[in-house]
């Protein structure tokens, strides 16, 4: 039984503050509350991957997915984020919403494998940098880290145009990858170079099952 209805979860997530000054190099697009609510709700409702679990959020930004997981009963959620302004906003969100059981660590996600975090988490969630501009392949590097940190499942968002490639990589990792949903992801005009006011891109919401490894 999921402890919060989807609508209520989304209402709570609308209270999560986003990036004050998004940084282009880090591809700081906020995860919209509606998408974050649908993602985390699905993880719990369909797969029982959140409640009572140890959850990591890679590139956690201001904590939208971490807070979604916490609201759905994750026993401990740990967000890893490089950027100082984002971790401060994350922490402020956690304090303002009076949430227990959620931590934020300022760290480079790419430095996590090979440490005590290997296979430490039940579930890993992420909305990675899509890696299209200055960070080519960054989403795949994040996904690779997720595979090494989780024992149960990894959830991630990737551009639909990369679907065949991700399916192939997933097999190499020995994970059972499945597209859970296709999203129209609305990137608001956060950066100056976005000439259109708002632009939809097609994004896949993936679940990678690691439980049989």
């Amino acid at each position: 039984m999921t402890r919060l209805k989807l609508k209520k979860l989304e209402e709570y997530l609308q209270c999560v503050d986003g990036f004050e000054k998004p940084k282009l190099l880090l591809e700081q697009y906020p995860t919209p509350p509606h998408i974050a609510a649908c993602m985390t709700h699905c993880m719990q409702e369909q797969h029982d991957d959140i409640e009572g679990k140890l959850v990591a959020d890679l590139g956690s930004g201001c904590g939208m997915l971490s807070i979604g997981a916490t609201l759905l009963g994750a026993q401990l959620t740990i967000g890893f984020e490089l950027d100082d302004a984002a971790v401060d906003t994350f922490r402020q969100n956690v304090v303002d919403m009076e949430l227990p059981n959620v931590d934020c660590i300022r760290a480079d996600v790419l430095h996590l494998p090979g440490s005590k975090w290997d296979k430490a988490f039940d579930t890993v969630v992420m909305n990675p940098p899509f890696g299209t501009k200055h960070n080519a392949g960054m989403d795949m590097r994040f996904l690779d880290v997720g595979m090494r940190l989780a024992t149960g499942a990894v959830y991630s968002l990737h551009k639909t145009s990369t679907r065949a490639y991700i399916q192939k990589k997933s097999k190499e990792w020995g994970a059972r990858g499945k597209v859970v949903a296709e999203l129209r992801y609305n990137l608001e005009a956060s950066y100056k170079f976005h000439k259109q006011k708002s632009k939809d891109i097609e994004v896949d919401f993936w679940r990678f099952d690691l439980s049989e490894l």
Partner: peptide, 8 residues
């Protein structure tokens, strides 16, 4: 403020 800074 509750955040460990592990960045190198």
């Amino acid at each position: 403020d509750g955040i460990p800074n592990m960045l190198l």
